[in-house]
Structures are given as structure tokens and as C-alpha cells.
Design a protein around this nucleic acid. Structure first.
Lengths: 367, 367
DNA sequence: TTGAAAGCGCTAACAC
DNA sequence: GTGTTAGCGCTTTCAA
């Protein structure tokens, strides 16, 4: 009868204590790793009782008592977008590694959904929120921060979340675009254009800025930017499929330019993808007639033909830094806000012709 | 002082009751929608107090008391795979619609991770788990089911989860492959091959079965299957990128066949994608020289050039059915297990030449 | 080194 | 209609 009860309801810390012939306090100490000053026999009897009863501590009770929760909220536009999908996987893994779980919130870039999600998460007792979807309502943000919720803003443009005690982690967009240009210039390309979609979000604007800066630095002028102002603003949900079509349209525009550029930097993989398709339709060979390099370097860039050369965001590092920020703030709520800016890296593909393929292993062996 | 305390700690149901001049019971009733037999003034005073205090009920306390939790666990291989990404978005939306949240668990198809995730979820008090990653340990499964956790198995091959009181939702794989063949035959293609990757999981085997069946039904013999037995089993994590390369290799094999087939059905979008790339490399035009149709119909299929014609899994319906199953089982733990099999649909693209494009609107108007 | 007891915030009997 | 009360399972002083 009692056995049966335990089976259905689950054993409690009391049951374990009774079976081990100790007090609930000792079991609690055991569970929380305070085994240093505990008798050997006590410890082993507790261990036996726990496994015999199949005891699992109740997270709800623990949370009610401590006010802490091992669950994080992750807000992003949509994991159907491969970039955010990869980011979600990396964050899930980084969270797991330190015993945290992640609630997924696909906001579809809708501020109302975003606010709803945050309210729910807070009601659920979540004490850490990672937001890759721009949190627009800074008042609400700081209200939650006051109440002890740690926020990390991901992929925010600019270097400042604008709210006290909020951290941020982002890839250096300016550097990303610059790296793309550097790679092209290093391989003999000179007439480089930048292909971007509208609207020019701050995020996208930064990449353009990086492009112009790098071109100037190489003494190649400002550099031309190709964009299609006439494309109607796409509904957020289907935005991604649109971007590829859009890249295809941009390919036509680029092919018509006089003189025709010899390389193009794409705002992201989807645009790069579309460019590849469009250039192919126009019988232009990549990379012999024109090179393409894209920013982001998601899984998607591995699917194209030729495989896209890309500037890859360090997704794993972003994830690790974000989790680190959350835990740091839990440890010290009052520490000042920090902005972590990470460097992107070149992910070689086959859409840029390389002058000399340097043999990294050999040269480092020689030194 | 008290004000300040409320700000930091959050108001409780007691605070609300005191401010409204009623008992906690009434507030609880109000919160849980039992407002039918409640005085008008009581109700409005509670509402005022709640908003004045910014009161948010504690999910932990509620869960501790009721044993229920508004959070579901979602196990899948990885949301970096666009198919699972889309599935996750659909499930998140369906869950949101009925006030539930979703914890994301990327198992990478690793049984150990899977078991860990489930143990954690159960410890968190989660009472509903959706698993698109095959749950192999049926003993563990039924143990949790005994304790009141509702399970829904997603995309399981075959019609039977094999555990009592467990539901399943899946697309009809046999029908999916058959639909692909039907569409090709209806458009004049006869010599059709099926391109698949190894290992032949039950899931993949069903699609092959559907292919053979449809070919026979059309009097076209068994139909040939192309596969590359020599490809080493790929590590789960990078499996997706590999599949595209694999499709590219299969294209060569298909081009070499005597006689050369005029159409190919791809096991999934990634393979279809690779085929497109490989056929392009071989100077074969799609769909003029050879048609390609893929199964799944994810966002990915919209990115290719030409856009892939695909048999699309009804992802939104899968999500809705899954959430429905969970709630149904919560309502009646003892109801018998059910298997929901959903039909896929044709998603037209440009990789199959269509004999006659029928004008659906016109014909339906005439009838 | 271990135990007793209070209470986290909520819900659900059960009184009034 | 509304209020009183007893826990849900855990952690954490404080005592022994």
C-alpha cells in the first residue's frame, strides 16, 4: 500500500530520511553536496535509500524555498532560421553543461509576443533570460532586472544595451564585413560590391559600415552597395525564404553593372545562396567570373554549389559567453553591465578563387 | 519599507487579499477563473489590487500544490536541422496557444543524452514530453508513464509506439513516397529512381517501401533505388551537411545509369539539394534532362535553384495533434494509446516539368 | 555531526 | 459568497 503510493506519487525527502534512519536535513545536505563533514555510514545509507526509492527531488519545492530556478528563457525570432537554430543548439549545450535547461521562445520578431513570453517566463520563476530578439521595451526590461532576473542581449547592434545591469554578447559585425573584404583583396579581387536587403536594421548597417571602412583602408574607394529598395517589406515569418529570392534578384542587378564587379560580399548566407542561384541562371561562373562570400557561415552555406566561402560567427563562443554572463550576474547582481564582442572567423569554401593556398601545418612546423 | 519589500520579493496572494480586503481563497478563485459565483465588488477589488501590486502568481508554489506544470519537454535531434527547426517552431506556437511553454532538448540522437534530458525534465516536474528523437528505452518510458507523465512520440516509423498509454503522431511515409511517384507519373515521367542515404532506418525504409509500391501500382516494375553503401556512417552532429554532399555523389551515380532515369525521388530535402548541385556540375538540366522531387518540403527546398518540388510534411498539423494528445491524456490518463497518421501534401516547385498546370480556382468555380 | 521546526506561496477541503 | 486552515516537499536557521 505504502509501496504503491510511493510508486505513483514519488518518494519525498521524508521517505528517504525515514528509510535511511536519518533526518531530512541530512538528506538535504547530501543532495546539495555538503558531504564534507558527514559520517561515512550516514552518507552511504542515504545513497542506498535514494536509489532504492528512485527518489527524485522536487524542483518545484526547491524553487519555492530558494527562489532560484535551473531554467533559462531563450528568446529568438525563430529556430526555423538556420542561424538561430544553430545558436539555440549551442546555447542548449552550454546550458546543459552547467545543469541548466532552456525554454524556447520563438518571437517571430513580434514585440507583443516577446513581452508575453517574458511575462510568462518571469511567472514561471525563470531568473535568467537570453534574448536574441531585440527587446524593445527597456522600461519593462529594467523592471525585471530590479526583481533579480538576469538578462543577456544577443546579437545587439552597437555596444550598449542601454539598461543598467544588463549584459550583451555579439559578434563584431564591422569586423565581419571587413574580414570578407580582406579575404577578397588578399586573393586579388578589387572591384567588390556589397549585397544587402532592406530595411537597413542597425545590425545590417554595421556590416555595411565595416565594408566601406575596409574598402577605404585598402585604397579601393567607398565600395558600391547593391540593394533593392523596391522590394516590399516582407512578413517576418516568411522573411527567410524571401531573402534567397531576393539574392537571386540582386544577381541580375550586379550582372548589369558597368563595369561588372569581380566579387560580391553578401549580407548573410541566404542572400549569398540566392546570388549563387541567380548568377548561375545568368551563366556566370562562380568563382571564375565572379566571387561570392557571405557573412554568418551557417550550415546552409555548406549546402550550396559551389560551397559558400563565409565569414562565420563564433556561435559556440557566443553561447558560452552568454551562459557565463548569466551565471556571473547571478553571483553578483550589482556588477556593472558588460558587452562581450566576439570576432568572426573565415570559413573557406569554394566560392572565392584563392591565389595561394597556404599550408598552415607546414609553416607552423617550420617555426 | 514594506513597499520596497514587495518590489524586490514580489507580491503574494496574501498581499493581494489584504489590499482587496478579501481572503486568499477568493483571490485564488479569481485567478483560476472561478468568477461565476463571485460578487461584483469582490471581483473588481481583486482586479485592482492585482494590477496595483503588479502581482504575478508563483508557478513554483502552484506546481508544488497541484502537481501540475505548464511546461512541456521537446526532445529532438537538433534544431540546427531545418526540419526539426520548423517542427520546434510549430510546436512552440501550438503550445503557446493553450498556455504551455516548451523546454528545448537537442539530443543529437544520443541515447544517453536523451535519457539524461528525460530524467531532468521529470525532476523539473514536467508532465508532458514530446519526443521526435527515438526513445529507445521503453522500460524507462513506461516507468514515467506510470507516474503520470504524458508522452507523445513524433515521427515514429510503424504505427505502434509499443508502450501502453503512449500516443504517437507521424506523417505517412509510405504515402509521401507514393505521392512523389504519382506526381511524376502524372507529368509523364516513367523511369524513376529513388535516392536514399544509408543506414536504412525504419523511417527511411518506409519511404522506400512507398516508392516500390507506387511504382508497381503504376505498372512500372519495382523501381530502382540508388544508395551509397560505401559512405561511412556519419557522426550524428554533422550528419546534415554530409547528406548534401552525399546527394551530390548520388547525382554522378544516377547520370552513369543505363538507361539514364528521367526522374529521381530524393529521401529528403538535403539529398534533393545535393542532387541538384551534382546534376548541375554534370551539365544536366533540371527539370528538362531530369526531374527531382524531394520529401519533407522544409524551408530549405525554397532556397535551391531551381526551387525543389517537394512532398511536404504537414508540420503545423503534426504540432497541433501532438499538443492535443498531451492534453487528452492529461484529461484521461487511462485512455488507450493512439497513433495519429497524417497525410503529406504536394508543394510545387520548379524541379519537375508539369504537363498541364491545372487552374484550381477556375475549375472549382465552374462546379 | 546530526535533528527539529518553521515557512516559501499557493490550492482545496471544509466551515460559516 | 467568502473565510479558515492544513499542507504540497524542500531548505535553513538554530539547538543539541
Amino acid at each position: 500500500m505504502l509501496e504503491r503510493d510511493l510508486l505513483v506519487r514519488g518518494a519525498t525527502i521524508q521517505d528517504v530520511a525515514r528509510r535511511a534512519g536519518v533526518s531530512p536535513t541530512s538528506v538535504s545536505n547530501y543532495l546539495n553536496g555538503r558531504v564534507g563533514e558527514m559520517g561515512e555510514s550516514t552518507r552511504s545509507r542515504i545513497a542506498e535509500a535514494i536509489s532504492a526509492l528512485g527518489y527524485v527531488p522536487s524542483a518545484a519545492a526547491r524553487q519555492l524555498k530558494t527562489g532560484r530556478s535551473p531554467i533559462l528563457g531563450l528568446l529568438l525570432p525563430t529556430v526555423a532560421n538556420p542561424f538561430y537554430g544553430e545558436l539555440a543548439v549551442a546555447i542548449d549545450a552550454a546550458a546543459q553543461a552547467v545543469g541548466l535547461r532552456v525554454i524556447l521562445c520563438n518571437t517571430q520578431r513580434n514585440p507583443a509576443r516577446e513581452a508575453d513570453f517574458i511575462a510568462q517566463l518571469v511567472a514561471d520563476g525563470v531568473k535568467g533570460i537570453l534574448a536574441a530578439s531585440a527587446v524593445s521595451d527597456t522600461q519593462m526590461l529594467s523592471r525585471h532586472v530590479e526583481r533579480g532576473v538576469a538578462f543577456v542581449l544577443l546579437e545587439v547592434p552597437g555596444r550598449n544595451p542601454g539598461v543598467a545591469h544588463v549584459d550583451s554578447v555579439a559578434t563584431d559585425n564591422i569586423q565581419a564585413a571587413a574580414l570578407a573584404v580582406d579575404h577578397l583583396v588578399a586573393n586579388g579581387y578589387r572591384d567588390i560590391v556589397y549585397a544587402t536587403a532592406t530595411p537597413l536594421t542597425p545590425h545590417r548597417a554595421e556590416r555595411i559600415e565595416g565594408f566601406h571602412g575596409a574598402m577605404r583602408r585598402h585604397g579601393l574607394g567607398e565600395g558600391r552597395v547593391v540593394t533593392d529598395e523596391f522590394l516590399p517589406a516582407s512578413p517576418a515569418a516568411s522573411g527567410d525564404a524571401r531573402l534567397a529570392d531576393y539574392g537571386r534578384a540582386l544577381a541580375k542587378e550586379i550582372a548589369r553593372m558597368e563595369p561588372r564587379p569581380d566579387a560580391v560580399v553578401a549580407m548573410n548566407d541566404a542572400i549569398g545562396f540566392g546570388l549563387l542561384a541567380g548568377l548561375h541562371d545568368l551563366q556566370l561562373h562562380v568563382p571564375n567570373d565572379i566571387a561570392v562570400i557571405s557573412i554568418d557561415g551557417t550550415l546552409l552555406s555548406r549546402f550550396s554549389s559551389p560551397q559558400l566561402t563565409a565569414i562565420r560567427q563564433p556561435i559556440e563562443d557566443i553561447a558560452a559567453a552568454a551562459i557565463e554572463c548569466i551565471r556571473g550576474r547571478w553571483a553578483d547582481r550589482r556588477r556593472s553591465g558588460r558587452a562581450v564582442i566576439l570576432s568572426p572567423v573565415l570559413a573557406p569554401g569554394a566560392s572565392v578563387r584563392e591565389l595561394a593556398r597556404r599550408d598552415a601545418t607546414a609553416s607552423s612546423d617550420l617555426r
